[in-house]
Lab assay of single mutants.
Amino acid sequence: MQNSHSGVNQLGGVFVNGRPLPDSTRQKIVELAHSGARPCDISRILQVSNGCVSKILGRYYETGSIRPRAIGGSKPRVATPEVVSKIAQYKRECPSIFAWEIRDRLLSEGVCTNDNIPSVSSINRVLRNLASEKQQMGADGMYDKLRMLNGQTGSWGTRPGWYPGTSVPGQPTQDGCQQQEGGGENTNSISSNGEDSDEAQMRLQLKRKLQRNRTSFTQEQIEALEKEFERTHYPDVFARERLAAKIDLPEARIQVWFSNRRAKWRREEKLRNQRRQASNTPSHIPISSSFSTSVYQPIPQPTTPVSSFTSGSMLGRTDTALTNTYSALPPMPSFTMANNLPMQPPVPSQTSSYSCMLPTSPSVNGRSYDTYTPPHMQTHMNSQPMGTSGTTSTGLISPGVSVPVQVPGSEPDMSQYWPRLQ
């Protein structure tokens, strides 16, 4: 039975679970980093996980050691009161100082060594604690504590007292930064006198190289990059290397530039699409467009005044059976039934097929058609009795279509119309 579990990581490298990497692998990681390889490249070359490479390099940059820390136990506290007071002093002298600059000053002034120097995250935590204590304490208590930490007896009751030896409130920041720059020169002199001055200088240079600022491109470089971006948004590694040799930039910087440029292009394309949609959409909808001609068919113009009344309900007709019959029939052209047409008796099958359309009241044959006459024609229609054979009435077949029909004066039988409509 094995005491430890061995495995293979996602890159194909072998590791022992819970145990640190061998010293030979750690040394190779540092050597590759000094030669300029990126952590992701080191991870692929040595088949070590990216997190492990970053952790080893980060500890090497901070402490200069590649040895693993002790497994188990607690780390001794490195942010001692003396170190905290120095950090507060540096922050007062130059409020814009960075944590890694404070760390360098602690090393250069001999406050800490490589073994007990606090990390950048520890210094940031100390600065946050100082800021929170400043908010919790009152103004007087804060000034007393700062005077105690600074070891001075001057008056701290006013704002300019934060910067000793100065009279203009805006000047101390520059003086403090100048003092810090002077301390940086002392850093070089002190570290050069040490035993491991060369190694420390190499480590600091490598650290500065990794902690780079934003790349500033010249106009020629920007023009070359934009020209390549117009050709393709995704250049391959050969195109990037050719462009890197042409404009004297690292291939990694060119790759990052193209990634950022593609993101910018997507944002601009989104804005262009929004403007295009806004320009195509009308600002207001016309009133006429809300009524579609496919839904509402136009009603033909009436030929006679009587045809303006298109349904039985508008003429005072309360018989719903006839109203439904007229509205359900398709529109037909106007025609006239003459008196000489043969009077065919209704076929029983045809009569039964339209039995649902006729009223059940037996008085329908005896009703006159003056009910369908509009009010303004009552006088004219009353002067001509319906009993004469020459009287013409208008029957409504569908809305908007008038059918003048000659009705025999002897017997106005409704059943004569249905064979004609089939």
Rank of each mutant, 00 (worst) to 15 (best):
Q27I: 11
Q47G: 04
A139K: 13
P118C: 05
L149Q: 10
P39N: 15
P39G: 14
V48A: 02
G72L: 03
G12V: 00
E133Y: 11
Q135T: 13
A33L: 06
G18P: 03
R147D: 10
L146Y: 15
N150L: 12
L149V: 13
S96E: 13
R105W: 08
W100N: 07
I66L: 08
S122K: 14
S132V: 09
Y143L: 11
S108T: 11
V14S: 13
K91Q: 04
D41M: 06
V30S: 03
A33W: 07
E133F: 09
I117S: 11
S132Q: 11
P95E: 09
K86I: 07
P76V: 07
C94T: 13
A99V: 02
G72H: 05
S43I: 00
G51I: 00
I123E: 05
S96W: 08
Q136G: 12
I71P: 15
Q47C: 15
L21P: 04
S4N: 11
E62G: 06
G7P: 08
R128V: 05
G36W: 01
Y90F: 14
L32R: 02
S132P: 09
R26N: 02
A99H: 01
R69F: 07
D23K: 05
Q27H: 12
S35I: 14
V126Y: 02
P22I: 02
A139D: 12
S65T: 08
W100K: 11
R105Y: 09
W100Q: 07
Q136V: 11
P81M: 07
K134E: 10
T113N: 10
H34R: 12
I42H: 01
L11D: 05
P76M: 02
Q2R: 14
E109W: 08
S24T: 11
N116V: 10
E82Y: 14
N150D: 13
L21R: 01
D115N: 10
P95N: 12
A79D: 04
V30Q: 05
Q135H: 08
S24W: 08
E93S: 08
P39I: 11
R19M: 06
G138H: 14
E109S: 11
V53H: 02
K86W: 08
V30Y: 02
T113D: 11
C112Q: 04
P118L: 07
A33G: 04
T63Y: 00
L107F: 12
Q2C: 12
Q136E: 12
M148G: 12
N150Y: 04
R92I: 09
P76N: 02
L106F: 05
G138P: 10
R147E: 13
G73D: 01
K75H: 06
Y60T: 03
L106N: 00
S54N: 05
I66Y: 14
S4W: 10
P22W: 01
K91N: 05
G110V: 09
V126C: 09
K75A: 06
I102Y: 05
I66R: 05
D23R: 08
F15I: 04
I87S: 04
R103P: 00
S132I: 11
N129V: 09
P76K: 08
L107G: 15
V78E: 00
D23P: 07
G141F: 12
E101C: 09
S122H: 00
A70F: 07
G73Y: 02
V16T: 12
C94H: 12
N9S: 03
Q136H: 11
I56N: 01
G73M: 02
N3R: 14
G141E: 11
V84W: 06
K86F: 11
G72M: 06
K145C: 10
L107E: 10
I117R: 15
G12L: 03
P118Y: 03
S4V: 11
N114K: 13
V14W: 08
Q2V: 14
V14L: 09
W100E: 03
V30D: 00
Q2P: 11
Q2T: 12
G141S: 13
I97R: 15
S4T: 12
G7R: 15
E62C: 06
C112S: 11
L57V: 03
V120L: 07
D115V: 13
R77Q: 03
G7F: 07
T113V: 14
N17C: 15
V53F: 00
R38C: 04
S108Q: 11
G18Q: 01
T63H: 04
S54E: 03
N50W: 00
S108Y: 13
A139V: 11
P22R: 06
A70W: 05
S6E: 09
L146Q: 14
A131F: 12
D144I: 09
I87E: 00
K134D: 08
Q47T: 04
I71F: 07
A79K: 01
N9P: 05
P22V: 05
I123T: 05
K28S: 08
I66F: 12
G110C: 12
V126G: 02
V48F: 04
N150A: 13
N124T: 06
V8I: 09
R128K: 07
R92E: 13
P76S: 04
N114G: 12
H34G: 12
E82P: 15
S49Y: 02
T63N: 04
S122A: 00
I66M: 06
S65F: 06
G141R: 11
T113E: 15
R67D: 06
H5V: 11
W100C: 06
E62L: 09
D115Y: 13
L106A: 00
C94K: 09
K145L: 10
D140K: 12
L106G: 01
P118W: 00
Q10Y: 02
N3S: 12
S24C: 12
T25D: 05
K75T: 05
D104H: 09
F15Y: 14
K145P: 11
W100G: 06
G13E: 01
R67Y: 08
V126D: 01
R128N: 00
Q136N: 14
C94F: 10
P22M: 05
R147V: 12
I29C: 03
R103L: 04
V84H: 04
R38L: 04
Q136T: 14
L130N: 10
G72R: 05
N9Q: 04
S6A: 13
D115M: 11
V84M: 06
S85P: 02
G73K: 05
R44T: 05
R38W: 01
S24F: 11
S85F: 08
